[in-house]
């Protein structure tokens, strides 16, 4: 298993390299630069700025410089927030994004699997239809509709929770709810489908034929199998949730890293965009690995050696 993990991590290096290279050249080929957004700068200042940030060098040299810095964990200075380096921005923003994303995932996992399993066990009952209906609604309504509604209802009209901002646990409630709702819906649907399939499997028939109590039949022999597709779904999803949601962070005014991406791209903040790409890709790779390991732990048929 350990050698498998090491092998997987080793094969992530070329992937990362390709991603970094690809995105570096793509963003640099885009028209415009970080300094020509607002009013035109004095040519002399511009020249100095370009020199300071190595923009006067050929692109391939800049690329090698960037790669070198990246290997040392330096993502470069931010252009739009000139007082900060990209690493600074992430070290303050990432914990916030992770806090919200993780809470949402945990809620979605617990709530989603429970609802999905209950619906599957009472297939074609009112409960089932209810869960399926609500889940479809949750999948259908986009976060950018849910977020302002929640903010208006609980923040402005009822005044129970802050409508935006960051600081106390109360600030977390609405963003986490917004993020968790669609994920709960998806997890519930996945769990329901997988549970129904597992309930029809031959080994569950065996468990029933041997008169095992319903708890054993359901929890031991059905749900463990039913959780497998949820695990493979949650991997990439976790990666994207933990790296911040643009919509939620924008609407609730949360200082996470989700916003950096759009801001960075629009402002030609090369280093910020590159940094975001690197962080997100890293999360995706790591979470895919975690999923595979979890899968092997849950399913003895899967072996990596």
């Amino acid at each position: 298993m350990l050698s498998y993990v090491l092998r997987r991590l080793a094969s992530a290096i070329p992937t990362m390299f390709i991603i970094v290279t690809l995105s570096f050249f793509m963003i640099r080929l885009a028209p415009g630069g970080p300094f020509d957004i607002e009013r035109p700068l004095d040519p002399l200042i511009l020249e100095n700025l370009n020199k300071a940030y190595n923009f006067d060098k050929p692109l391939w040299q800049q690329y090698l410089l960037y790669l070198g810095n990246l290997l040392q964990g330096d993502l470069g200075p931010s252009f739009t927030r000139r007082d900060f380096s990209v690493v600074d921005l992430f070290s303050t923003g990432l914990p916030v994004s992770i806090q919200i994303g993780l809470s949402a995932i945990v809620i979605a996992l617990i709530l989603g699997t429970t609802l999905g399993a209950i619906a599957a066990l009472r297939q074609n009952s009112l409960t089932d239809y209810g869960v399926v209906g609500v889940a479809t609604l949750g999948i259908t309504i986009p976060t950018f509709v849910i977020a302002p509604i929640l903010s208006l209802a609980f923040g402005v009209m009822l005044g129970w929770l802050p409508a935006g901002g960051w600081g106390t646990w109360q600030h977390m409630v609405l963003p986490v709810a917004t993020l968790a709702l669609p994920q709960t819906a998806i997890v519930a649907r996945l769990t329901r489908g997988a549970t129904i399939e597992a309930l029809r499997s031959n080994h569950v028939r065996t468990a029933r034929a041997y008169g095992l109590p319903p708890f054993v039949v359901v929890v031991v022999h059905t749900l463990r199998a039913a959780i497998l597709p949820v695990v493979s779904y949650l991997g990439p999803t976790a990666a994207s949730l933990l790296t911040g949601s643009v919509v939620v962070e924008t609407i609730f005014g949360i200082p996470g890293i989700g916003r950096y991406f759009v801001q960075g791209a629009l402002g030609r903040d090369y280093t910020l965009v590159m940094g975001t790409v690197v962080v997100i890709a890293l999360f995706i790779i790591v979470f895919n690995l975690i999923v595979d390991i979890l899968y092997a732990l849950l399913d003895p048929r899967v072996r990596y050696d």
Binding site: T15, P236, T243, F261, L266, V273, T276
Partner: peptide, 19 residues
């Protein structure tokens, strides 16, 4: 495909739009 999967979607779209 795997590599493209690791690229965040929005990055790609934003780049195209910016382009």
């Amino acid at each position: 495909v795997d590599i493209l999967y690791s690229l965040p979607f929005i990055f790609f779209v934003i780049l195209l739009v910016v382009f």
